[in-house]
Structure formats: C-alpha cells, structure tokens
Design a protein around this nucleic acid. Structure first.
Lengths: 159, 159
DNA sequence: TTGCAGTAGATGCAAACGCATGGACTTCAA
DNA sequence: TTGAAGTCCATGCGTTTGCATCTACTGCAA
C-alpha cells in the first residue's frame, strides 16, 4: 500500500470520527430524550427495525457496548416495561427480545423528535449528493467492519 | 424541509453510525493497544496533534466524554507519567496539558500500529475518490456539530 | 451415544462514568 | 471599582461499564 493512499485512509477515518463525536454531543444535548439515555434509545431503535424477536448477540453487533453491559442494559429496559425478554424455543441458550407496546410507543415519540434534529443538522451541512455519498460510503465501511480478523490479530499485544 | 430530503439525511446519519460502531469494534479487538484504552489513546493522539499545551475543555470537544470523566481520565494519564498537567499562567482557572516524552513515545508506538489497521480497513472498503468524499463530508458535518444550539433546545424536555 | 469444544447469556467485582455541585478565577456592566 | 454572572476544572456519589468467569446449552466428531 502506498504511503499517500494509507494517509488518505487515515485522514478520512479521522474525519468520520470527528464528525461522529461532534454531532453526537450536539444530539445528546437536545432535550428530547426523556428518561432514556442515547444508548438505551439505540437499543429500542434497533429493536424497532426488526419485526420479529431479536437475539441479544444480534443487538450487540450494532451497539458499541460489551456483551455484559448490553445484557444489563436490556435487563433494565425489561424492568421498566419497555422490552420483553423470553427464552428462545429454538436455542436453549438464547433469549428473544422485542419491544413492548410501551417500548414501541416510547421509541416512536423520541425517534420522531430525534429525526428532526438529525435532519436539521445533516441537511444544513450537506448537499443531497453528499448525503447519498455518505450513505453509500457508510454501508461499505460497515461491511468491512464485520470482516474476520486476520491471523496477525490473534497474537498477543506487544507493549 | 421535504420529507424525502429529511429521510435521506437520516439514512445517511444512520449509515455513518453503523460504520462507526462496526469499525470501532473491529479496531478495539486488535491487539495493539497495550495498557491503553481507546479513549486514553484518543486523548494522547489529540495532544500529539498540538505542539503547544492544550486546555482541558479543548480536549473535551473532540472526545465523547463528560467533563468530569475527561478530567479524571487525564488525571490517570498524569499519574502514569504520560501527560503533564500545569496551571495556566494566563488563566488561573485552567490547566495546560501536554504529552511527556514517555507519552509521546507511547502515542507514536500505538498510533503507528493503529494507522496500519485503519488503512487496511478503509482502503479495502473505499476507493480513493470515496476517501476524499468522506473526508470532505466529515469536515462539513463536524463544523455543523459545534453550531450554537437553537433556542428551542433551551426548553425542558417533554416526557 | 457420549464427550468435548464452542457459543449465548448472566453475574461478581473493581474501575470508570454521568450528574450535580463546589471552589477558584475571569469578564463585563453599572 | 465592584459585584453579579459566566467559565474552568475538581470532587462526592450513585449508576453503569468492562473483564473475567460461570452456567447452560448446542453441535460435532469419535
């Protein structure tokens, strides 16, 4: 890999990181979240995208959270009556998660307000063409993210 | 704002979020971090980009972390000899942060390995042109993120 | 069939986080 | 000049997180 190509890749990634942090802070500061944290909303939103039940480890793919932390976050949502958790009849190890009626209603209410803020921020910053580009680029990067780690990654870290 | 334009903005943002989560998980799983967490590395990297001392609140702009959490993260890095913290002679409230020699060395070592992983992931997923597009798009979005909140945001949240 | 490696999710525990608040300093208007 | 409001960072405290580990179950090979 050439030096300039590698450099451009790192610049692009840093740009994405900066945009992410900057906008996340902005959205988090909006007074739309009610009793939910953004992470909790993220889980409700992910559940809302699926019609059928979702496994915990499937949820984990989209959420930047360790498996134990996600397990307990879901437990709190269950206790609050927003999520239903049931044993999976097809796999005795797993659980099936789904929104309750209250959870779906809450997701819709918060999601509607959040979507307005997202639209305002993004449409102000980008042209229609750039939005299309970002969507395509994000899709490609996400596909890369789930790739199998190379063998080198199995080695112990060098301090 | 038209419905389709708003919709496209939200799709683009979700795409960015997915890419971010997916790649962050991938990078976090790499065995390159030594004794550092990614957040700690992020702070060291930000400090390395500035030649002069950096104020704590400046650091906070780029890091997705509350002010108290950042204050304590920096404190831990100081205790570990990676960061120097001194009173700001021009503003008695503030502190001036800078990498120590050890901190700079550590950032370079980890950063070099991380840059390889970033380059591999990004160049595999994107063309040269897409990298340029992403960099430009991220820059525009980040500029939007620091915009002053609208007056509406000052109101109390509706539950 | 049995045994063993692999996977899904839960739990103990120490570390880290966010919210609220406090103390010290700056800024600006009266 | 002074005092009130704003800014910067630190700290108390309850909550959440990550790491390591555990249990329970699956899947596959002998």
């Amino acid at each position: 890999m050439t030096r300039s190509r590698s450099r451009r890749a790192n610049d692009a990634w840093e740009s994405l990181l900066t945009a992410h942090a900057s906008l996340m802070k902005r959205f988090a500061a909006e007074p739309i979240w009610g009793e939910l944290t953004m992470r909790e909303y993220d889980v409700l939103y992910t559940l809302s995208k699926h019609d059928g039940p979702v496994r915990l480890f499937e949820l984990g793919r989209g959420v930047l959270l360790s498996q134990p932390a996600l397990s307990r976050l879901v437990e709190r949502l269950v206790e609050r009556g927003l999520v239903e958790r049931a044993a999976d009849p097809e796999d005795g190890r797993g659980v099936r998660l789904a929104l309750t009626a209250a959870g779906r209603e809450r997701q819709r209410a918060v999601g509607g307000r959040h979507a307005v803020d997202v639209a305002r921020a993004v449409t102000t910053a980008l042209t229609e063409e750039e939005m299309r580009q970002l969507e395509a680029i994000g899709r490609k990067l996400a596909a890369q993210g789930v790739a199998v780690p190379t063998e080198r990654n199995r080695q112990e870290a060098v301090l």
